[in-house]
């Protein structure tokens, strides 16, 4: 099966590689993920695995509440969500994510996926939610050049012309100020720097989308030749 895992971005640091160069590294913590559902062409029309990550722990029953939550709901999940895990017979997980896999792959529900799938040097696609930038102008949002700050320029960071006057409207897709960030972003050239099986860590070379603590999904694109 294609190597894939769900992890949490812990943060960035820099570490020395084997040849003594200081390399920027993103640390991703990935607890063992579990296959919760196997989707097949026969049952769902396509082939995929659904993977659960980060165990949802059972919370204590609240004392003396009028409507005590059932044991299932005490995982912080609602009844349909909890029922999905009961049906799978796996543990309860906070995050579910689907990965397309080839039809011939035989993976069973309950199969554990760990960081051991990965090797230093592997090329990955890392998907996360980018940091929210709020309401951003066109210079930041679309890399407009902006105008002079000095020389009597009274326009600095405005969008300026929105297009020709003849069409009498602004074409769709032209750059305007607005909400930026908080989108799903995939980086497709990230290399594995090191795999720490003891602590369940993946050290990736370079940056990864999202703030620290963000959930990232990792999929291998190409296997590396051992050392990164």
């Amino acid at each position: 099966m294609e190597a894939c895992i769900i992890g949490k971005k812990i943060g960035m640091t820099s570490l020395y590689d084997a040849s003594g160069n200081l390399v920027p590294v993103t640390v991703v913590k990935a607890d063992p993920c579990v296959v919760v559902q196997r989707k097949t062409v026969g049952s769902d029309g396509y082939s995929a695995v659904q993977i659960g990550a980060f165990e949802a722990r059972l919370r204590k029953a609240p004392q003396g509440s009028k409507k005590p939550k059932t044991a299932l709901k005490r995982h912080g999940l609602n009844a349909p969500q909890a029922g999905h895990f009961v049906k799978a017979g796996t543990g309860f997980y906070k995050h579910l994510k689907e990965f397309r896999i080839s039809v011939e792959d035989t993976v069973e529900v309950g199969h554990e996926l760990t960081v051991e799938q990965f090797q230093p040097g592997d090329t990955l696609a890392v998907t996360g939610t980018s940091k929210g930038k709020g309401f951003a102008g066109v210079v930041k949002r679309y890399h407009f050049h902006g105008a002079d700050m000095t020389h009597g320029s009274m326009i600095h960071r405005k969008p300026q012309s929105g297009g020709a006057t003849d069409p009498a409207h602004v074409f769709k897709g032209s750059g305007r100020p607005g909400r930026m960030g908080g989108d799903q972003v995939t980086v497709r050239s990230t290399k594995v720097f090191r795999v720490d099986t003891e602590r369940g860590l993946l050290l990736l070379k370079g940056a990864v989308p999202g703030a620290n603590g963000e959930v990232v999904t990792i999929k291998r694109l190409r296997a590396g030749k051992g050392e990164g």
């Binding site: 812990i10 943060g11 640091t13 570490l15 640390v27 860590l201």
Partner: peptide, 8 residues
């Protein structure tokens, strides 16, 4: 964060 300090 502790993990990062350990790695360093």
């Amino acid at each position: 964060m502790q993990v990062i300090q350990e790695l360093e």
